[in-house]
Simulated scan of single mutants.
Amino acid sequence: MKLQHYLGGLEGLGPVSIETRVFVEPWETRIFAIHTAMMALSAQLPLPQTPSAFNTIWTWADLRKGAESLNPFDYFKYRYYEKWLGGISGYFIDHGYITAEELDALTEEYYQHPSKPLPSAGAAAIDDRVVEYLVEGDSPARDVLVTAEFSVGDMVRIENVPSVEHTRLPGFLRNRTGIVETVYPGAYTYLCDTGPDGIGPAMTVYCVRFDPNDLWPGNAEPNFSLYADLYARYVASADVSVSVEAA
């Protein structure tokens, strides 16, 4: 199953946006700020305390899952930060911070009175925590010992994992072969367990080099390679048979 957010590399998907601005509309900066504040308030780090009522966990994974849970037709219709807004709104509703009816009422109220002041309780303390969070960072590296199955130069085949909710594996790499370029030292995990997709406990991450002619036969430019950083769950021996799902 290829989820709609990982259809890159396929032909006939329509025009490609070449927009280079990070933020196109002013409201997009606020959505980014809300997301960043939610991550900072969730972080299990020694950061400044705040009076915020936000008491659940929010990560990049939650943002991505929320956006990707949109109806596929809506996913392709909305712009980048519109998808973020949908995912964030759904999260607050699902976790009981606000009801859909209350959100609709507040939205209509601000439409009618756009100059109405926004809530600001605890904003300065939250700003301090966000700044320190951005300075400290939040690494996916874990202090555990793992043994890498493959070495630099090994030919590997990319698995076709059953992606139900979220995946870190691009669709166009599934069942393709490549060469291990780098075995990153240490072990890494994702921000959440991806279920059947297979990223849970910390594992090796490989940089795998692909020949574009193998990915897009007869439709690739010459003299370049494509590199992908892939969790060990996605990487198998090249002599492993193609999965039943892809057959």
Rank of each mutant, 00 (worst) to 15 (best):
Y231D: 01
A43M: 04
F54L: 13
K77S: 07
E181S: 15
R142I: 04
E149W: 00
T50W: 11
P48A: 04
D193H: 00
S237L: 14
P117F: 12
Y80S: 02
V152N: 07
V131Y: 05
D128I: 04
L191I: 00
K83F: 03
A105Y: 08
R30N: 09
T189S: 09
K65E: 06
G153D: 08
G153W: 02
V144Q: 09
G171L: 02
I31T: 13
T107L: 10
L191A: 03
E19C: 10
G171D: 00
F172K: 10
C207S: 12
N213C: 04
P217I: 02
V131G: 01
G14R: 08
A43G: 08
V156G: 02
T167E: 00
F92C: 13
I158N: 01
D229A: 12
A247R: 11
E221N: 04
G171P: 01
E19Q: 13
L10W: 05
P46F: 09
W60K: 10
Y110V: 15
D143P: 01
D104K: 13
T50R: 10
G198S: 09
L145C: 09
G171C: 02
C207W: 10
I98N: 03
Y227M: 14
G14Y: 10
G200S: 14
T204M: 11
W58T: 03
L173R: 07
A124S: 11
D197R: 00
A61P: 02
G171E: 01
F23I: 13
G198L: 13
I93V: 14
I126A: 05
V240M: 12
D104G: 08
T99V: 08
Y190Q: 09
W84C: 11
L41Q: 02
F92R: 09
S52L: 09
P72A: 05
Y6V: 13
K2G: 04
R168T: 10
N160C: 05
G178D: 01
D193R: 00
V242K: 09
F23A: 10
H113V: 15
K77Q: 11
Y227D: 12
T20G: 08
A40V: 03
V135I: 06
V242C: 08
Y75I: 03
L226Q: 11
A43D: 05
G200E: 10
E11R: 06
G153S: 09
S163T: 01
E25K: 15
D138F: 04
Y97F: 12
I88H: 00
E28Y: 07
S120G: 04
D74W: 05
W84Y: 14
A238S: 13
R209V: 14
H95A: 06
K2F: 09
